[in-house]
Design a binder for these strands. Structure first.
Lengths: 340, 340
DNA sequence: CTGTTAGCGCATTCAG
DNA sequence: CTGAATGCGCTAACAG
């Protein structure tokens, strides 16, 4: 060894050995530290001879460049942050997949975190990512105020929201065409001759819920059908509520003959509701499922493309990083009706 | 401003402003830099008065500590790396969810990446994570040699493999009870009176495939039933192959009356195979699905718990980080038979 | 309770 | 083509 042992405070974790640095490599190869840096970063202007000497030393010492130190010097981390509500949820993990795809092509790694739809937690995670100096941030926002990010955005940190727009902040957003998708799905039922179509979905304070309800109303209006609030059921996606909703929709003098469910959880709850299973309601749902084609009654759906949403959001981050100026952009991604 | 403008090389990304540092805060608050550090890190031995002054300066400057610089100094990043094959795949995103849960409790963030089951890519991603000095590494390994990680493991980096063990390296692993699960599932069919049970699964060079096939054979042997290779179909999970497999299983003088599918993709392909749909084969599958209870024929499954797998793997990482010594451990997580 | 000094590992001047 | 010095922002040591 050329250098005296470091280890001022031995880390608690077992026998972690201090890693070799460029200085160690330089010493072993008999060159200057900058030359090692050149080799490591693949810069030119290094003679083949010295390059090989350096590479030999790197291999021998098992040197691996400390990316954190480089970031400190260079001012960029080649990392972007992604905050979702729950990475275990299919739509969001596919958003992550899309983001990752673009990020990887840009030589960038992904720091991911789940907010659990908790305001404090989302804020803390966001600040933690900023503290780590991510080059950009993609957020599937909880329905809380995001004004605390204004300073960062103004300071030039690219922040893109996905799936739903932020409250209290003008920023780039990538959305599915929730309204258009719901309109198309409802229209599909109308074209099949239905005139009384129930709607089961999220409360209106959920962005996607409100948009999809609007799309449903659009379709009714376009067809000259009346909007009947008695056929609309908004709330928690549990079986009991959906069961009650279906029961009500089927009651009265002019019962529903069809049903549009506004999101995956409400769809699942409805599919499991006894009153629905007993009924012969026509059914279209927002969001696709793996086995939707194999159900007792194959399910027609309005599908979105979460991976494309992630890709689009990531692309926007890198565009901003690349110098794209201008006001906040909103990208709306199409949905697809899959008739089954 | 107290300091002269930095910005030796203006970053390309738009008007990124240089961020305030502890020095700026210290100057504004009229204290030493170390005092700022104390306040930021919540250390004690700071008078209420100066603390408030510092906090005022922090708020005014919108200072956010650079975690990268701190890591460089402290030798730990409070980050762990997770490499899966595809984060968009339900099992793996749930592993990620579990890992995240434990990591969050430990104040640690997650750097995630998908290998796409590509050897070079997985290796490159792994090295990239090591380069970023993650405190630990969790890998859902591709079926390639992981000997290149031996040095890192020896140097004290906690590396835990999940879902499948690594090749060419002795390391901590967390697995589902593939063999036991397949045995239980097959046994369930035997108890229902079936004597001719077909098996459709992955090739034997896929670890989980081999384990599950062994579990299937265990169950047959336990029941004194002969193992008939003519009833076992291993290969790619496409509909054509599964259709042919079912057709063959149903042919001959002693046709199958039941079927065990060894993983989710083969299950899906089989469910969609015409010959299967025409048949009245009893069916048990490894891996659960969201809508499995709502199929035309409700599907009995052997379910694993990927989130628990992620939690377990992360816990192992933190145990090692906490000083746990000893040889590589293997944790086997139970599976659950869900009869439908 | 508070401040000063040094240096984590690297890349970036700017000389040789 | 190569190397020595400087500092990125922070915290560990060690004074006061």
């Amino acid at each position: 060894m050329t250098r005296e042992p470091k280890t001022p405070t031995a880390p608690p974790g077992a026998g972690r050995v201090s890693r070799p640095t460029m200085r160690d490599v330089a010493a072993l190869a008999g060159v200057g530290i900058k030359t090692v840096s050149r080799v490591v970063n693949g810069e030119r202007h290094v003679s083949e001879e010295t390059r090989q000497a350096v590479e030999r030393a790197i291999a021998q010492l098992r040197f691996r460049r400390n990316a954190g130190a480089a970031s400190l010097r260079q001012g960029q981390t080649s990392t972007i942050g992604l905050i979702v509500e729950d990475i275990g949820e299919p739509i969001q993990s596919n958003i992550a997949r899309g983001v990752e795809r673009i990020a990887h092509d840009a030589g960038t790694l992904l720091l991911t975190a789940s907010s659990s739809d908790d305001e404090e937690r989302e804020r803390a995670l966001t600040l933690s990512l900023i503290s780590r100096r991510v080059d950009g941030l993609i957020i599937v926002p909880s329905p809380f105020d995001h004004g605390f990010l204004r300073d960062e955005a103004d300071a030039g940190l690219p922040i893109v929201f996905a799936d739903r727009p932020p409250v209290g902040l003008a920023a780039d957003v990538v959305l599915a065409d929730n309204r258009g998708g719901a309109r198309t799905g409802t229209q599909h039922l109308i074209e099949d001759g239905h005139r009384r179509i129930a709607f089961i979905g999220d409360p209106e304070d959920v962005y996607t819920g409100a948009e999809r309800l609007t799309g449903y109303r659009d379709a009714l209006a376009n067809a000259g059908l009346p909007y009947d609030p008695g056929l609309v059921f908004l709330g928690a996606p549990d079986i009991a509520r959906c069961d009650a909703a279906v029961t009500k929709a089927l009651a009265g003098t002019w019962p529903a003959t069809a049903l549009f469910t506004g999101n995956s959880l409400n769809t699942l709850a409805t599919l499991r509701a006894p009153s629905f299973q007993r009924s012969d309601l026509a059914h279209v749902a927002f969001d696709d499922f793996e086995l939707a084609d194999l159900l007792r009654r194959p399910l027609t759906v309005v599908a979105q493309d979460p991976a494309a949403m992630g890709e689009s959001a990531a692309q926007l981050v890198f565009d901003r990083l690349g110098g794209l100026e201008g006001p906040a952009r909103t990208v709306v991604l199409p949905t697809t009706l899959i008739a089954r």
